[in-house]
Simulated assay, not measured.
Amino acid sequence: MAKYLILIYGDEQRWDAETEAERAAKDAAHGAFRDAAGAGLLGGHELEAASTATTLRSAAGAAPTPTDGPFLETKEAIGGFYVLEAPDLDAALALAARLPELASGHGGVEVRPIVDHS
């Protein structure tokens, strides 16, 4: 079984503008995703806003310097992630396709294999 990182991204302003009903429907869809993934779901979390991020940068040989905010200024931000174990990429994609952000009109889901160093 391979491991995959599923990154969920979208427009934070649109997430913030969701009604209680929209948020509840999205939470229910994430519950259905977690149920479908079952024991293959190894972890995941919703993230705070990108504005709360701290980025470390360093020149070669220099001590890292923290800066406020995300690494890049973009309209879309990563809002959460899951770590999933699945038999193959097709299975991981089939599960990721269940995530509600894909139907939002402003979000996306990236599925990326995790390197196994064992």
Rank of each mutant, 00 (worst) to 15 (best):
E48D: 15
D90A: 15
R34G: 10
L47N: 04
A86L: 01
D27R: 12
L41A: 05
K3H: 10
E73Y: 04
L99F: 02
D88H: 13
G105C: 08
T65I: 14
R98N: 03
Y4P: 00
A28W: 07
A77D: 03
L89S: 03
A2I: 05
A50D: 12
A63M: 12
I6Y: 00
D116E: 15
A32I: 10
E76Q: 07
V111M: 05
A49R: 08
I6T: 07
A77C: 05
H106R: 12
A63T: 13
G43T: 07
G31S: 09
G105Y: 07
A92P: 04
G108Q: 03
G108D: 00
H117E: 08
F71Q: 12
R98A: 03
L93Y: 00
A29S: 06
F33H: 00
W15A: 15
M1L: 10
E73C: 06
E110A: 11
A60P: 10
T19S: 15
A50L: 08
A32S: 12
S51R: 11
G79L: 04
A59F: 06
S104Q: 06
H117V: 13
K75G: 10
R112K: 14
E22C: 04
L93W: 03
F81T: 03
K75Q: 12
P87C: 04
V109Y: 02
E18R: 13
A103F: 05
A17K: 14
L93M: 03
E48S: 12
P100R: 08
T67I: 07
P113W: 03
L56W: 00
R57C: 05
G105A: 09
A50K: 09
Y9V: 07
G80Q: 02
A37I: 11
T65M: 15
D90P: 06
L99Y: 01
G105K: 08
G61K: 00
S118G: 15
K75F: 05
D35T: 11
I78R: 02
A63D: 13
P64R: 06
L47F: 03
F81E: 02
V111Q: 08
D90V: 05
A77S: 09
E12A: 08
D11A: 08
Y82L: 01
A32W: 04
V109M: 03
A53H: 09
A28Y: 07
I8R: 10
H117S: 12
T19E: 11
A21R: 09
A53E: 07
L93R: 01
L72Q: 09
M1N: 09
L99R: 00
A91V: 07
A77N: 04
E76D: 09
E76K: 02
T54F: 11
Y9M: 11
A59Y: 06
A94V: 09
R23C: 12
H30V: 04
T19G: 10
G61T: 07
L5C: 11
G44A: 06
V115I: 13
V83D: 07
A37M: 13
Y9P: 00
A96N: 02
E18Y: 14
A24K: 08
R98H: 01
A37D: 09
L93D: 00
A21Q: 14
R98V: 04
G43F: 06
E22Q: 15
A49M: 04
L56V: 00
P100I: 04
E76W: 03
R98F: 03
K3T: 13
A59D: 15
A103R: 13
V115M: 12
G107R: 02
S118Y: 08
Y82G: 02
R23Q: 14
A86I: 01
E12T: 06
S118T: 14
A94S: 15
G79M: 04
